[in-house]
Nucleic acid binder design. Structure first.
Lengths: 205, 205
DNA sequence: ACCTGAACACCGTTCAAGT
DNA sequence: ACCTGAACACCGTTCAAGT
């Protein structure tokens, strides 16, 4: 051992992230450990600290990958820009929920990680999140010519969809809800946009 | 030591939960450990396992206390049943946000805990959560005579408020939002209820 | 009966030492 | 220069042994 030079730093990085991703997808957040990852890629823990800052860094990078996949998935499902805002939003919400349901452990990790840290998340990570939010704003575009208003609408609706998804997937509302997450999103979107349009018509008149 | 009999089982339970609560409030979820709690109350780790199932159990009980305090706090702030649904909801949302902001570490723990477990939460814990949800439903009561409809409205609005609170407090939307959590809640509630009422009027006519 | 203390099997992180 | 392996300071959980 020592000075093996079998892999470049970048290769080790990839191998480690792949291994971490696999562990995350099968055992969840709590299953991830530096020692486990090291064993999986055939290196020592020490090596991981040459490539990553620490375990939190590794998890953040895995989460970055998850955000990319989530973005691609949702985007692929709502590519036709022609539909009305409410329909577009519903498709978007459905895609988000479907991803979260089908990749529950990885999706959960997005939130288990971030909460612990008091520092702000790095820029590259925030950008990945904003890309997803931007999809919502795009869907809302026809509703207003005021960019700020679109942003605000997007934020609130996104938070709402995310809240519904959270409460459903993390089983926080088992008893209460016979409604599916999709039905809840439909209620949210329909009523919210109806209320918004009514208000707009009134103030235009 | 051994056979000290200084405290009853119930006393030990209380001391341990108090200690855990203090640690949670100052260091957050990650700061809690059986060894730390044991030291704080002057017993050995072994003793904790005579009173609690495991660390998860301890944390769940602390979270139960948090839910009680949250309920009392929100309830105390919206006791007048006379106000209109939108106003009542806004007060409620404001109280919820205020609690979460002022007790961020303890509030966060409510969600950091629950995610890990695959099993359902125990009944006593679910009841504590439902009490909070019931406050929302009470505020919505004037809107409809259909109990199921009230439940559904409550679920969606609660999920929305919770989503906004989550995204704000956990700093997931630092850049995007100049809007405060309260303003976002107001947008949500106003538009949603306006949309709901419009729809109701139309179908009544 | 009540509680301890040591043991077991794990952690994350660091860093002198080997090649 | 690259990587190791041992060390340090922690974990959660169990359970024979002490009083």
């Amino acid at each position: 051992m020592a000075r093996r030079n079998d892999h470049t730093r970048e290769e080790i990085r990839c191998m480690a992230l792949d291994a971490a991703e696999t562990i995350a997808a099968t055992q969840g957040y709590r299953g991830i450990s530096t020692r486990g990852i090291a064993t999986a890629i055939g290196y020592t823990v020490g090596t991981l600290y040459l490539v990553f800052e620490n375990l939190d860094d590794i998890i953040l990078q895995v989460n970055g990958r998850t955000l990319d996949k989530l973005y691609d998935w949702v985007r692929g499902r709502c590519s036709d820009d022609t539909s009305a805002p409410d329909e577009a939003l519903l498709v978007l919400a459905g895609a988000y929920i479907a991803y979260a349901e089908n990749n529950a452990l990885r999706w959960n990790m997005l939130f288990e990680q971030t909460e612990g840290r008091s520092e702000l998340l790095p820029e590259w990570y925030q950008r990945k999140r904003e890309r997803v939010l931007a999809l919502v704003e795009t869907a809302l575009q026809p509703l207003s010519e005021d960019e700020d208003e679109i942003r605000h609408l997007g934020l609130v609706l996104w938070a709402g969809i995310h809240g519904i998804c959270t409460l459903k997937i993390r089983r926080r509302m088992d008893i209460a809800g016979k409604l599916s997450a999709e039905e809840m999103c439909q209620m949210l979107i329909d009523n919210f946009l109806r209320g918004f349009n009514l208000n707009k018509m009134n103030s235009d008149a």
